[in-house]
Amino acid sequence: MNPYVIMILISSLGLGTTLTFASSHWLLAWMGLEINTLAILPLMAQQHHPRAVEATTKYFLTQATAAAMILFASTTNAWIMGQWDINQMSHPITTTLVMTALALKIGLAPMHFWLPEVLQGLELTTGLILSTWQKLAPFALIIQIAPNVNHSLLMTLGLLSTFIGGWGGLNQTQLRKIMAYSSIAHLGWMIIVLQTMPTLTLLALITYIFMTTSTFLMLKLNQTTKITTLSSAWTKTPLAATLLSLTLLSLGGLPPLTGFMPKWLILQELTKQHLPLTATIIAISALLSLYFYLRLCYAMTLTISPSTNNSSAPWRLKNTQSTLLLATSTVLATSLLPLTPTTLAMLL
């Protein structure tokens, strides 16, 4: 693709998210979302092979439907209440409709079916943009409307997402689909705590973005999209394979790593709000996710010598990719836990 066109598309991605961030009016927020959707379409279909085009079509259909639903809900709100402000939307029907549409946009559980298929058809860099940058604008809207949304709707969305994210990933061998289900599960954790403590949602989103960035870039460094090719990653870059397993465990939420921080704080907040049953259920559902992260770690690092290796060794080429962002995000994704008090003090 022409570099000028790429520049236009990337700057439009930035423009869309910035518009949605800056707007207090639903129409402008909708415009930002539309610009975001339009600008990423050519990036997704960059390779023009059938799977990329199919993923682009599916993404376009879901995102256009969700955007139309958002605008419909806000128009209905204007008809009923006469309000166009985002944080003043208070009619129960319209808030439910908007929350459903935003859940469709980011891929929360009952509306999640497009996400694994779309992510599977993309290359890793575009998949990284899709699962990090494209979530920011809908989350800005979700956090603003959260106080007025029905509580049990949010709880249902969150619990279903954590469970389906765990269950769906169990049977996968494709890494991008596993990452999609991990995204669904993490979004569920963010939605659960949305009404009681929105800053924790923000914290969970930030840490999720670090961990996902690190994982996607590491997969791109090794050029792996399946578990079988992942299992020979240690022959190419042994240190990166070790760090990737640490990052995956961080995604799973094991204690000395960054991923433990949001889960810990969310569980603490839920118990503070006298919701021990919900806390127990999502803690158990995290085990489901942990299973497939652990399986990836097993395939990657625990099958190396002295045990016999089943996969054939690939050809080793000299790597020319820039690893600055990878190094930064890996450090952030693995070793941020000691900074928890500082982070909390910054956010609260």
Partner: peptide, 14 residues
């Protein structure tokens, strides 16, 4: 106007 221009590029690239 920017969106219309952007759509032109999107369509051409797609």
């Amino acid at each position: 106007a920017w969106v219309l221009l952007l759509t032109l590029f999107v369509v051409l690239e797609l």
